[in-house]
């Protein structure tokens, strides 16, 4: 399968890329790792007239701690996050997720920015970033703005990145106090997209009372889902069995999975419930 014809540019600065994007309008598409876009172009689900490859722009690939945040450059490859010591020390959730995203070859090319910008509820980083309460930096010709992850996913393949803009970075608040985070997804085979996935991030005070909770769900809703009622069910509790059961029940009720080859709606709700329990328990273990 070969994509339909298109023009190709590989600008070497962000300014140049933004200028091109603005001049070309909706004919242009950004090419990051290409591991979502190229398969779609090969199937002719996407037929952009012009690809703007941002791989040659320096300074978009990094993982660093800065001003109370872990900041990740948009062009950081999955493998770079997987191998980052800073991420491993405070965010084991990234390692949980990385191991389950596609396979090593795909992770050598796929980028964290692309994984979010694709706007696909089947991708794993959206739920992880929702749990971590991330913010996304979007840069346009007039400068950059930070958008909460909760306002980022606007619909099927639609995000807050507007025409003429580039997603440039992602940042997550560094954990304070006793913090634990975890992610798991059920997959039919290695490299498959999630049947359902659950990301959990919790913070406890010195008495073991939950002061904040983030829960994100993968592939059980038209957009990546923040399980708000489940989060609320944990905050203020000691995260005992009762609180965990309530949170898991809410998650299974509040998602809206559709039946497909990966399972029926009912099955997926049950997977969400089971995984929510397990991920809260794991995050709690990691926090303690």
């Amino acid at each position: 399968m070969i994509p339909s014809s298109f023009e190709y540019s590989a600008p070497s600065t962000l300014d140049e890329a933004l200028k091109m994007l603005n001049a070309l309008g909706d004919e242009a598409k950004i090419l990051a790792g290409g591991h979502s876009l190229i398969p779609m172009m090969k199937l002719r689900f996407a037929e952009p007239g012009h690809l703007i490859d941002i791989n040659n722009i320096p300074g978009l690939s990094y993982v660093k701690e800065e001003g109370g945040y872990l900041t990740i450059g948009a062009m950081t490859r999955e493998v770079e996050l997987e191998e980052s010591d800073i991420a491993a020390a405070k965010f084991p959730i990234f390692l949980d997720a990385a191991k389950l995203i596609a396979d090593p070859q795909v992770r050598n090319w796929g980028t964290i920015g692309g994984n979010l910008a694709h706007g696909d509820a089947a991708n794993d980083h959206p739920a992880v970033m929702i749990a971590l309460d991330a913010e996304v930096e979007i840069t346009g010709q007039d400068g950059a703005r930070w958008v909460s992850i909760n306002e980022f996913f606007m619909g099927f393949y639609m995000t807050a990145v507007q025409e003429g803009e580039i997603l440039t970075a992602i940042r997550v608040p560094l954990p304070t106090g006793k913090n634990g985070n975890s992610y798991h997804k059920n997959e039919r085979k290695v490299g498959d997209y999630a049947t359902a996935g659950v990301a959990v991030n919790i913070t406890l005070d010195d008495n073991g009372t939950c002061t904040s909770a983030g829960i994100g769900l993968t592939n059980v809703n038209p957009t990546p889902l923040k399980a708000v009622r489940s989060e609320q069910a944990l905050i203020g509790t000691k995260i005992d069995d009762e609180a965990i059961n309530i949170a898991a029940q809410y998650a299974s009720e509040d998602c809206s999975p559709s039946e497909d080859l990966r399972g029926s709606e009912d099955y997926k709700r049950r997977v969400v419930k089971a995984l929510t329990k397990r991920m809260i328990t794991k995050a709690l273990e990691r926090a303690n």
């Binding site: 190229i38 490859d53 791989n55 070859q105 795909v106």
Partner: peptide
């Protein structure tokens, strides 16, 4: 991009060449 038969190394890193453009 599922089977890996097209795997080669790009600057030493393994990649699936059916899912990359030559220009990349």
């Amino acid at each position: 991009s599922s089977c890996g038969a097209c795997t080669l190394l790009i600057d030493g890193k393994s990649a699936k060449s059916c899912t990359l453009l030559a220009v990349q």
